[in-house]
Amino acid sequence: VSVELPAPSSWKKLFYPNKVGSVKKTEVVFVAPTGEEISNRKQLEQYLKSHPGNPAIAEFDWTTSG
């Protein structure tokens, strides 16, 4: 189950709350306009370098507050 949070234009930000008793931590995933899922800052940096014209990296908020 995921919750969609505010994201930069043409992107989606999905929040996957951890299940009770789960060892997996809460996860935030950005979905690029191409449909590619980005789950960490390093991936995001690589994606933005190879896909010019996207929002600046500073516009991506990895917190769950939206």
Score class of each variant (00 low, 15 high):
Ser39Ile: 13
Glu36Ser: 03
Asn18Val: 11
Val1Arg: 09
Ala7Ile: 04
Ser50Ile: 09
Ser2Asn: 08
Glu37Gln: 13
Trp62Arg: 01
Val1Gln: 11
His51Trp: 04
Lys49Tyr: 09
Ile57Leu: 13
Leu48Pro: 00
Glu4Ser: 11
Ile57Tyr: 11
His51Arg: 03
Asn54Gly: 12
His51Val: 02
Ser22Glu: 11
His51Asp: 01
His51Tyr: 06
Tyr16His: 06
Gly21Pro: 07
Lys13Phe: 02
Val31Glu: 03
Asp61Phe: 04
Phe60Leu: 01
Ser39Phe: 14
Glu45Lys: 10
Asp61His: 06
Trp62Met: 02
Gln46Pro: 01
Leu5Asn: 05
Pro8Tyr: 04
Asn40Ala: 05
Asp61Leu: 05
Ala58Ile: 09
Glu59Ala: 08
Lys25Glu: 13
Glu45Leu: 10
Gly53Cys: 06
Pro17Ser: 11
Ala58Lys: 10
Val28Pro: 02
Tyr16Lys: 08
Val31Cys: 07
His51Gly: 01
Val20Ile: 13
Val31Thr: 04
Trp11Ile: 05
Gly66Pro: 13
Val23Trp: 08
Trp11Lys: 05
Glu27Pro: 11
Ile57Arg: 04
Pro17Arg: 10
Phe30Asn: 00
Ser2Lys: 09
Pro33Gly: 01
Lys12Arg: 14
Pro6Cys: 10
Val29Glu: 02
Thr26Met: 13
Lys25Phe: 12
Leu48Tyr: 02
Glu59Gln: 07
Glu45Gly: 07
Leu14Trp: 08
Lys13Ile: 05
Gly66Phe: 09
Pro55Cys: 03
Thr34Val: 00
Glu4Gly: 08
Asp61Cys: 06
Lys49Met: 12
Gly66Asn: 12
Glu4Asp: 07
Leu14Thr: 04
Gly35Met: 03
Val1Ile: 13
Glu27Leu: 15
Asn54Ala: 08
Pro33Asp: 02
Lys12Asp: 06
Glu59His: 06
Ile57Ser: 07
Gly53Lys: 05
Thr64Tyr: 13
Ala7Glu: 03
Leu5Pro: 05
Glu45Val: 10
Ile57Phe: 13
Phe30Ala: 01
Pro55Glu: 03
Ile57Met: 11
Ser50Gly: 08
Glu37Ile: 15
Tyr47Ser: 00
Leu5Cys: 10
Ser9Pro: 15
Pro6Val: 07
Trp62Thr: 02
Val23Ile: 12
Lys24Arg: 14
Pro8Ser: 04
Gln46Asp: 14
Ser39Lys: 14
Val31Gly: 01
Ser65Val: 11
Lys13Ser: 02
Ser65Asp: 13
Val1Phe: 11
Asn40Met: 04
Val1Tyr: 10
Ser2Thr: 11
Asn40Gln: 06
Tyr47Ala: 00
Pro52Trp: 03
Val3Met: 08
Thr26Val: 14
Pro52Lys: 06
Phe60Trp: 01
Phe30Asp: 00
His51Ile: 02
Val29Lys: 07
Phe15Thr: 07
Pro8Lys: 05
Ala32Lys: 00
Lys25Asn: 14
Glu59Ser: 07
Lys49Asp: 13
Gly66Thr: 12
Glu37His: 15
Glu4Arg: 08
Asn40Pro: 00
Ser2His: 12
Thr34Ala: 02
Tyr47Asp: 00
Tyr16Phe: 13
Leu44Arg: 00
Asn18Gly: 12
Ala56Ile: 07
Tyr16Ala: 06
Glu37Tyr: 15
Ser10Val: 04
Glu37Ser: 10
Tyr16Leu: 07
Lys13Ala: 02
Pro55Asp: 02
Trp11Ala: 03
Gly66His: 11
Lys19Asn: 12
Thr63Ile: 05
Gly66Glu: 12
Glu59Thr: 06
Glu45Ala: 12
Leu5Ala: 06
His51Leu: 02
Gln43Cys: 06
Ser10Ile: 04
Ser65Leu: 10
Ser9Gln: 14
Val3Lys: 08
Val1His: 13
Arg41Cys: 12
Val28Asp: 01
Val23Ser: 15
Val3Cys: 14
Thr26His: 14
Leu14Glu: 03
Lys12Ile: 10
Gln46Trp: 09
Ala7Val: 05
Pro6Gly: 07
Trp11Pro: 04
Lys12Gln: 11
Val29Gly: 02
Thr34Asp: 09
Tyr16Arg: 10
Lys42Cys: 14
Lys49Cys: 09
Phe15Ser: 06
Val23Leu: 14
Ile57His: 05
Gly66Ile: 11
Pro33Arg: 02
Leu14Phe: 15
Lys19His: 13
Phe15Glu: 08
Gly53Phe: 05
Val28Glu: 01
Leu14Val: 09
Ile38Ala: 02
Val1Gly: 12
Leu5Val: 05
Asn54Ser: 13
Trp62Gln: 01
Val31Ser: 02
Ala7Thr: 04
Gly35Ser: 03
Arg41Glu: 11
Gln43Lys: 06
Trp11Gln: 04
Pro52Ser: 05
Glu45Met: 10
Ser22Leu: 10
Phe30Glu: 00
Ile57Glu: 08
Gly35Arg: 02
Ala32Glu: 00
Ser10Ala: 13
Glu27Asp: 11
Pro17Thr: 13
Tyr47Pro: 00
Thr26Lys: 10
Leu14Asn: 03
Val31Tyr: 07
Leu14His: 06
Ser39Met: 12
Phe60Asn: 01
Glu36Met: 04
Lys19Gly: 14
Arg41Leu: 14
Leu48Ser: 00
Lys24Gly: 15
Gly35Val: 00
Val23Gln: 14
Gly21Met: 06
Gln46Glu: 14
Glu36His: 07
Gln43Met: 10
Thr64Val: 15
His51Cys: 02
Ala56Glu: 11
Leu44Val: 01
Ile38Tyr: 03
Ile38Met: 05
Pro52Met: 04
Asp61Asn: 07
Ala58Ser: 15
Glu27Trp: 14
Leu48Cys: 01
Pro52Arg: 04
Leu44Phe: 01
Ala58Trp: 15
Gln46Met: 11
Pro33Ser: 03
Asp61Ala: 05
Ser10Pro: 15
